[in-house]
């Protein structure tokens, strides 16, 4: 388990290697360590953490989105890194506004970890975060022609009719 000092050391080495403004904040809570990084440099930070010789976080355990509505910037993408050598986890979080997320300021990490493919598609599907450079960014769980991003906090729960929308344009409201 990375302690608060260890987290600061990691943050310092990231700042030295990747750039001063990359790590915005360090969060150590409930025994878990998280780096808050700028979206533009997220990929560089993750690449550094993966390949750095002393403490490589070689395994991307999870990538998921989150909506912190009403706080700003609203959206966030979390990367859960795992070091099989150190047996430690490190969270990397990057927060971005809805506009920045839809404009594609966040670069993809599919070239660093192949596992990010499904998980970035899922994040795009549910939160509308457009990953720059992802080869095949499309909806994964929701239908191709679905409108909106259902995991956002301002997307209502319920009240939505079940649609198989491929014939909706020919026979509107056929389900009634």
């Amino acid at each position: 388990m990375i302690d608060a000092t260890g987290l600061e050391l990691i943050a310092r080495s990231v700042r030295q290697a990747v750039g001063e403004g990359t790590v915005r904040d360090t969060i150590h809570a409930h025994g878990q360590a998280t780096l808050d990084v700028a979206p533009e440099s997220a990929r560089n930070v993750l690449g550094f953490l993966r390949d750095h010789a002393d403490e490589p976080f070689d395994f991307l355990a999870s990538l998921h989105g989150c909506d912190y509505f009403p706080a700003e910037p609203r959206l966030a993408v979390h990367y859960q890194l795992l070091s099989t050598e150190r047996r430690e986890r490190l969270g990397v979080r990057t927060r971005l506004t809805v506009e920045a997320a839809e404009a594609g300021t966040l670069p993809t990490v599919t070239d660093l970890w192949a596992t990010a493919d499904f998980q970035e598609k899922e994040t795009f599907d549910f939160f509308g975060v457009r990953f720059d450079g992802h080869e095949d960014l499309r909806r994964l769980h929701m239908p191709e022609d679905y409108e909106g991003h259902p995991q956002r906090r301002d997307f209502p729960i319920g009240g939505e009719p079940v649609l198989y929308t491929f014939n909706e344009h020919t026979t509107p409201r056929w389900y009634e």
Binding site: H30, Q32, C66
Partner: peptide, 16 residues
Amino acid sequence: EVYEAIESPRGELGCF
């Protein structure tokens, strides 16, 4: 916010 991971029959099951 926390991420808790355990070993399920199929691998790492994480809950965020």
